[in-house]
Amino acid sequence: MIVAERKPLEEILRLIDGAKTVLLTGCGGCVTVHMAGGEKEVEVLASLLRLHYKKEDKPIKILTQTVTRQCEPEYVRELADNVDKAAVVLSMGCGVGVQFIAENFPKAWVVPALNTKFAGATLEAGVWAERCGLCGECILYKTGGICPVIRCSKSLLNGPCGGSQNGKCEVDPEIDCAWQLIHDRMKDLGKLDLLLEIEPPKDWSKARDGGPRKVMREDMRF
């Protein structure tokens, strides 16, 4: 899922400063699952904003609406009535949601309440970690299902750098060295010889470096 985190309140307040009516909109997708921008988080943020404006003795109206997914047009369009009423749309969706609302409502001023961080997984309740670099050409079959593109701090494709120590990355002792993980797993699986192959330079044109990407399925189109 796409993992995001709320921006500092100070920044959010700056983004909506001066608006008399704000539409605070959540998303029922990834950000609900990892509790960053679903219905409950919308309630909490709305409450915090009301507390702030009450404290400042400034009137503000906060409309709240959480849609099933902010990344699909039919759900985003459900926001139409409230978008019309609001001076600012504050989205608690990921970066996709913010853009998609803006895209669907050309006249709306849409701002993000979250910082979108990565494509990741839930390690345990309350802990999420990055797992996919969205590089467009998966090489996980070469590395035992552990991605060096995103999990190695330097995206090295041919083994660990000299900063790998005791299984940890030099960048942060909290980070596992991806190549230690890859090495250990390949060894356990009896496939260490695969790591002796020299992995050639990656084709980054399949990734974001090739320009914004699009996927089309003719059979799915109307």
Partner: peptide, 9 residues
């Protein structure tokens, strides 16, 4: 950072 290629490449 860039890391378009690694040291081996």
């Amino acid at each position: 950072n860039v890391y378009d290629i690694d040291s081996l490449q």
